[in-house]
Amino acid sequence: MSVPGYGRSDEALTTLSAADRSGETGLSGRPTMRDVASTAGVSLKTVSRVVNAEPGVARETAARVTAAIETLGFTRNELARSLRHGRAGALGLVIEDVANPFYSQLARTVEELAHAQGHLLLTGSCGEDPAREQELVLRFLRRAVDAVLMVPAGEDHTYLRGELTQPGHAPIVFLDRPPVGIDVDTVLGDSRGGARTAVEHLVAHGHRRIAVITDSDRVWTARERVAGAADALRDAGLDVDPELIVPGAHAAGDAEAAVRRVLALPAERRPTALFTANNRITVGAVRALRDLDPDEQPALVGFDDFELADMLATPVSVVRQAPAEMARLAAEAAYARLDGDEQAPRRMVVPCELVARGSGERVPR
């Protein structure tokens, strides 16, 4: 029979309990805690206290135990220990695509913070597939990770309600996009505000026809960035031209094709500036612009920075998010829950920063 929410069996628990009683916490064929106790002339409980850095052991006794451990080459069986404690000693992280610099920086920061806590990091990419998201999250929870941090692909998270009602459940923290149907700690970038800043910057340089090249409108961040761009246009007294709102550019190749299409519009409808709503889209836009004479290129501001953006012939202006800060806040929220924090779930929004490098400062031609 499985223990709800953890996927452990009674057989496994019985086996480990027997190991605890015998003191056999080392791997088969290797020195055990019983061997350490015998060599040091102490009880199994004393060895356990020293191994787990618990108080109540005299300094001289602890030194004897430590010397016996070093002499015998004893190592603790971490798998058995984690199962006895009910957790895997790991965090689970679900992101969209580890190859994307934004998500790789999230993962790197979470990994560093987990390492500082003595935890491993288990990472999976769901690639905007809600079914894959659900599969990864539930697999992590069944393996009893200590907490799950996730960038959701779907917009229905009621499948986690049962998990969240389990006693002692693993904390779940959402990143980059909010949960739908549940209430948990959430850390977001300011997608709407950042997009608004980008378009305001283009308007300030004289642009009135600004194309917004964005991901699928089923993606929450894409919708937020279109909304922010529309806010800026309306505040400037400009129309939001549906022809210049171009969704569906999920990959760089899609974005390149979309930019070529809008630049092929008749002169009176052609945009003089582009706002590209994520770093993959910006890369596609740069490819579409490379064959144009520099004097004919539209202005460009992208959302999210990307490697070498500042090294191009005309460096790319961007609205830069702070993925490391987002990851830090999410990990801290998870560890606070593990330490007993019972306050209401929090929603934290991390501001963006406009980085003007040249491409966004072109004036209309």
Rank of each mutant, 00 (worst) to 15 (best):
L238R: 01
A299L: 09
A19L: 12
E111Q: 15
P364A: 09
R290C: 07
E353M: 03
R261V: 01
S38R: 15
T158R: 11
A107D: 04
A322Q: 13
H169E: 12
L354W: 09
R132N: 07
A153H: 03
F140T: 02
G92I: 01
E243Y: 01
N278G: 05
Y335K: 00
C126R: 04
E133T: 00
H207E: 11
T272N: 07
S22F: 03
D185H: 08
F102Y: 15
G73S: 06
V199M: 12
E342G: 03
E135Y: 07
Y159S: 01
A277K: 09
E24W: 11
D339L: 00
A313N: 02
R49N: 15
S82G: 10
P271L: 14
L312W: 14
Q321I: 00
V319K: 01
A147I: 05
D129T: 00
A147S: 08
E24N: 15
R365S: 06
E78I: 03
E24D: 14
G194Q: 06
D231P: 00
A19K: 07
D310S: 15
A144C: 04
L265G: 05
I182S: 06
F303H: 08
D190G: 00
T109F: 14
A68V: 03
F275V: 06
E256L: 09
G248S: 07
V262K: 05
V184C: 11
P171L: 10
R362E: 01
A195L: 07
V51H: 05
L122W: 15
A80G: 15
L16Q: 05
G193Q: 11
G302L: 02
L121K: 04
A251H: 13
E332V: 08
G181L: 10
V203A: 09
L263M: 10
A37V: 00
L338S: 03
V262M: 06
N279A: 04
H115C: 03
A18I: 08
Q134V: 04
L300A: 05
R59Y: 08
R287H: 13
I95Y: 15
L93R: 07
T46L: 06
A236G: 09
T14K: 12
H169Y: 08
A204C: 05
G340D: 13
R346E: 15
F275S: 02
H205Y: 15
R192V: 02
T158M: 00
V226A: 10
L233G: 07
